[in-house]
Every structure is written in structure tokens, then in C-alpha cells.
Amino acid sequence: MNSRIRFRSFLIILILFAISFFYHLPFYVSQPGIAKELEPIIHVEGGNDAKGALMLTTVRMGKANIYSYLLAKWSEYQKIYPEHMIKEDDETEEEYSVRQLQMMEGSKDAAIINAYKAAGKKIKVSYDGVYVVNVLEGMPAEEKLMPGDRISKIDGIKFTSSKQFIEYISRKQEGTTVSITFTRGDTNMTERVMLKPLKGTDKVGIGITLVDDLKITTEPRVTIDTDQIGGPSAGLMFSLEIYNQLTKDDITKGYKIAGTGTINENGEVGPIGGIEQKIIAADKSGADIFLAPNENGAKDSNYRAAVKTAKNIGSDMKVIPVDSFKEALDFLQTLKPR
């Protein structure tokens, strides 16, 4: 009898443990990821090799269960984020993943543009429309569009930038119906959508967040294989790796150089999340230098947080503040070869 009671008690405890393990809280937990060398995943035809390495850095981000939440509470370098800080209002997991991957694509495009222009190489950029990365609940696009759809025309009109696209829509009146031409997978589709006011603004819209769909032609050709890595934070390091393969002088000078930061088509470097975890990842990889967004010297900048973390963990890495692709290049060109 006692053995039966013990077995049932054990079984109940096991079931409760399994339920608590798979029950997700409305939080995300981030922790140090990896520092990954870029030369194996970026290939410029006829590109030059480096003696050192340029590396992107990542964080591991996942939904919190009871155990990961408690562990993060007691860990100095794991962070807990409320769900609304990670995902947009009413955004599904699928939409979040699509948004991250599309931001990565935008990051690649900006990196290629900056690197080729700086290296004086041939590049042609054309605008092919916009990608839908999120559809807002209760807005006209909800029943018509999906994350990943590529919109090519509005009312039969092609645009040369997403700015023109947004301006065209915003000039119209509430209740106006527009025709949206888009591609879903391999299928071309057209839907009619009535415009509604956008929450918190005095403008109307269809209720999507978007990124540009750019077609970039380069000489020599470049390919970037990021698999399922998402987000825009590797933009700066992509730019530097592409530039290094395009030019004869090796900007690594034999050093292992990690870093992070978004980049736009003008070469401006922007802040990212998880800088502390990325410093730890870079230090574990043996990086000599870490390039961190300076945010124009802001007191709470990524750079200042990176310096503090490097000091706290006793790292020998040299942390360098950068506000632009040019600043990063200028610094690397001052390094003495190893």
C-alpha cells in the first residue's frame, strides 16, 4: 500500500514538474549567446582573406518558464523582459519571427550598400516594394495580409521608397478603399482594403509594420548566409567583413574583432539590446577588441554599459565607441599589425 502511495505521489510530482516546465510566463529571458566569425558566412567573389577575424555577437532569447525566470532573477548577466518589450501589441510568435528575419535582411542590405560604396565597388540598388512584418489586430489588413507578404503596388502605382508608400496612404481620408497588389509565396494577389485611423496618430493606414524590399546588384557578387539568425544588430559587423573582403588591406591586422550595432544606408550605427550578454560572448571567444554603439556619447549608451561589463568580468578586451561605419574603419586602420 505504501509503495502504491509513493508511486502515485512521485507520478503527481512528475506531472506537476512537466506542466510547470512547459508553462510559459509573460516574460522573455536573455542570456549570453555566441561570437561567430563572419568570414565563413559572408562570401565576396574573389575576396581577400583575413589574418584575424571579424565576429558578430548574439544573445539567446526565449520565453520564460518558472525555472528560467527564477534562474535569471539570481543571475547577474541574464535579463528578464516583459513580453510587451519584445513583441509588439497582439503580435504572434510567427509574426515576431518574421519581423526578426526581415530586419536581418534589411541589415544585410544596408551593410552591402555601405561596404561597396566605401570600397569604391559597383553597386546598383532598386526598390521592389515592401515586406509585411506585422499585421495589427483590429486594423483593415488583419483579414487580408500576412507577415512575409511582399506589397508591390497600391492602386496600381509602384513606388521608389517606403517613404513614398507611407505618404501616399497617409494623404487619403478615413473610409477610402485602396487596392493592394502583393505576392504571397509564389502567388500574385490583389485585395481591396478600407483605410482606418492609426492608433495614437492623426493619420490613416491599413495597419501593418513594414521593411523595404531592395534588389541589390553588386560587382563582385556577395552572398550572406545567416540561416535563421534574426534581428538587425549585426549590421555594423557585416559591413566591416564585406569591406575587408573587397579591399586588399586587411583591416583586422591579425586581431579578433567582435562588435555589434545596427546600421542604416547612411552608415550610422545604432544601439542594440543585450550589450552585456554580447560582451560576455565576445570575451569567451577570446576577442581582442569590441566595437560598441556610442549613441553620440549618451550617459546610458551601449558603449558605457559594455565598458562596465568588461571591467566587471575582468576582460582584457579593448572596448571602442563608434557612431558610424566610417568611425569603425578609421579606428581599425590605426591598428598596428600583429
Rank of each mutant, 00 (worst) to 15 (best):
T57M: 07
D49I: 07
T177Y: 00
A310P: 15
N294G: 03
V44Y: 01
L11N: 08
E265L: 09
K117L: 09
A118P: 05
I15K: 01
I272Y: 01
F27I: 05
Q173K: 11
A298N: 06
T209P: 12
A287R: 04
W74T: 15
D90S: 09
T226S: 09
I216L: 11
L214Y: 05
D212C: 03
M104W: 01
T201G: 10
G129I: 10
K308P: 13
L101N: 08
I41T: 09
M103L: 09
A258Q: 08
M61W: 03
Y243E: 08
G156M: 05
D300L: 00
S233H: 04
E37Y: 00
L14C: 10
D323P: 14
K336Q: 14
N264F: 10
N302H: 01
A234Y: 06
D202F: 03
I263P: 07
T187L: 09
P147S: 10
G235P: 05
G138R: 05
N48T: 12
R221N: 09
T209D: 15
H84S: 14
A234M: 08
G273V: 10
V319L: 11
I208W: 00
V133N: 15
H84G: 10
A18W: 05
A115S: 13
T223E: 14
S161K: 00
G46P: 02
F182Y: 14
T160P: 13
K215A: 13
L70G: 05
K124H: 11
S20K: 04
R60M: 10
D283C: 02
V322R: 07
Y168P: 15
N134D: 15
S20W: 04
G254V: 06
N312Y: 01
I242W: 00
Q173A: 06
D128C: 04
S315R: 07
K336G: 13
N266C: 02
P337A: 08
S170W: 00
S75P: 12
L101R: 08
M237G: 01
T187N: 13
L136Q: 11
I279L: 06
G138T: 15
D155W: 00
I34V: 09
L195V: 15
A292T: 11
K196T: 15
G207P: 09
Y255N: 08
G231F: 03
G62K: 03
I280P: 11
I279C: 12
D89E: 11
D149N: 05
K79E: 01
E93D: 13
T190G: 11
T92Y: 02
S126A: 12
L335Q: 08
A64F: 02
V211N: 06
M139W: 08
L240M: 04
K63T: 15
K163T: 14
I257Q: 10
Q164F: 01
L70P: 03
F165N: 05
S152A: 03
L329G: 11
S107G: 08
